[in-house]
């Protein structure tokens, strides 16, 4: 017995068209940014020209002392994000269980959601002085409530029918976590990771402005203090290249691979 395949050629054609459309829209967006930069450099005194910045890139990337700062920031982003993900999952789990502790954690998460990044950075400066721990603290405390809320949605949306199936077939707890509960949370984990990854980059730079003398945030501050606008622009470019590069070349491909089961179109038997 066979069932007809549905729309395989049409699906492929649509996918190719969509990809090209995405590419051109992306290119148009980038072009508009360059245009805004060009207009800014022509009409103000504090935006350096595109040519000036582009011509400084080779010399800038050859400077050996920029890379330790870049690496320090990358390390802080990934470290703090790992802490935020683990704490966020713990908080989401406790909230999903309800009860007294669920209520307590829920209040903490709500409170943390309302703390501005600048205040958190100043608090960290008071509490940890100018130490590395302060940066991790700020990034983790700002990002973890968002992680918790996204994962809480995932926990609440758990498919009870699949739980029932695993009960009927007497899955052991490890098999249930590995094959049912865990994979269900993966899309939510990626959503939290992607959102908070960009957020963490923005917060880490702010924390580095206040709390430490190393990292890209500290280098931004130094460039502005000395009114080195080309340097500030170059650091901004490095920031954007790393942020977007890791997101598009690392996180998105991994997400696409892990969630490949969500593809569309039917197959014939």
């Amino acid at each position: 017995m066979t069932e007809r395949p549905e729309g395989s050629i049409a699906d492929l054609r649509k996918a190719v068209t969509d990809r090209w459309l995405d590419f051109f829209l992306g290119l148009a967006g980038l072009g508009s940014l360059v245009l805004v930069w060009w207009v800014g450099s022509r009409t103000t005194t504090f935006v350096p020209s595109i040519a000036e910045v582009v011509s400084s890139i080779p010399e800038f990337v050859r400077e050996e002392e920029i890379w330790p700062d870049v690496l320090a920031t990358v390390r802080r982003v990934f470290g703090a994000l790992a802490i935020a993900m683990v704490t966020g999952f713990g908080a989401a789990y406790v909230m999903s269980r309800g009860g007294l502790w669920g209520q307590v954690v829920d209040r903490y998460v709500s409170l943390m959601l309302g703390i501005p990044s600048t205040i958190a950075a100043l608090l960290a400066l008071f509490i940890f002085k100018r130490s590395e721990v302060g940066v991790y603290f700020v990034v983790a405390i700002i990002t973890f409530p968002f992680v918790a809320l996204t994962l809480l949605q995932g926990l609440r949306a758990a498919d009870r029918r699949l739980d029932e199936m695993s009960d009927v077939y007497r899955f052991p707890m490890t098999a249930h976590v590995r094959h049912v509960a865990g994979p269900h949370l993966v899309p939510y984990t990626f959503a939290a990771l992607r959102n908070e990854y960009a957020h963490a980059w923005k917060v880490v730079v702010l924390a580095e402005l206040f709390a430490v003398n190393t990292g890209m945030g500290a280098r931004f501050a130094r460039a502005f203090d000395r009114f080195l606008l080309v340097d500030a622009m170059l650091w901004l470019l490095v920031f954007m290249v790393i942020l977007l590069g890791t997101e598009y070349l690392l996180i998105l491909p991994v997400e696409r691979r892990v969630l490949r089961w969500r593809g569309s179109g039917q197959v014939s038997a």
Binding site: M1, E3, W261, G263, S264
Partner: peptide, 8 residues
């Protein structure tokens, strides 16, 4: 993948 199969 199950999502790519028909109901039958």
């Amino acid at each position: 993948w199950p999502m790519r199969l028909s109901g039958g």
